[in-house]
Amino acid sequence: MNSLEISVRRTLSPKALPSSETLGFGKYFTDHMFLASYSTKKGWYDARITPYEPLPLDPGAAVLHYGQALFEGMKAFRHEDGKCVLFRPEFNWQRMCEGAERLCMVAPPKELFIEGIKALIKVDEAWVPKEKGCSLYIRPTLIGTEGFLGVRPSDEYIFFTILSPVSSYFGGGAKPVKIWVEQDYTRACPGGLGSTKAAANYAGSLKAATEAKKKNYAQVLWLDIQREYVEEVGTMNVFFVFDNEIVTPSLEGTILGGGIRNSVIELLKSMNKPVVERKVKLQEIRDGAASGRLKEVFGTGTAAVISPVGELAAKDWNIVINNNEVGPVSKKLYDELTGIQSGQLPDSKNWLLKI
Rank of each mutant, 00 (worst) to 15 (best):
T145I: 12
E111C: 09
K110G: 02
T145F: 01
E146P: 14
F113W: 01
K110V: 06
V123R: 12
I114N: 02
F148C: 04
W127L: 01
T141G: 06
I138P: 01
V128P: 15
K122F: 00
I114M: 07
V106H: 14
I138Y: 00
R139M: 10
K110T: 06
V128K: 03
P109M: 04
Y137K: 10
M105F: 04
I138A: 08
Y137A: 03
E111Y: 05
A107N: 08
G147M: 04
E125T: 13
E146C: 13
G147D: 04
E125H: 14
K130D: 07
T145G: 10
L136F: 02
I138G: 06
A119F: 00
L120V: 09
F113K: 00
I117S: 03
K110R: 15
G116I: 00
G133A: 11
G147P: 05
K132F: 04
L120T: 07
G147Y: 03
L136T: 13
V128D: 06
W127T: 00
S135D: 12
E125F: 13
E131M: 13
F148P: 00
F148R: 11
D124T: 06
G116N: 06
E146V: 08
A119C: 07
W127D: 01
G116W: 00
M105C: 08
K122Y: 02
A107M: 01
C104D: 06
T141E: 06
K130F: 10
E131C: 11
A107Q: 05
P108N: 09
L136Q: 11
V106Y: 07
G133T: 09
I121M: 02
I138V: 12
F113E: 00
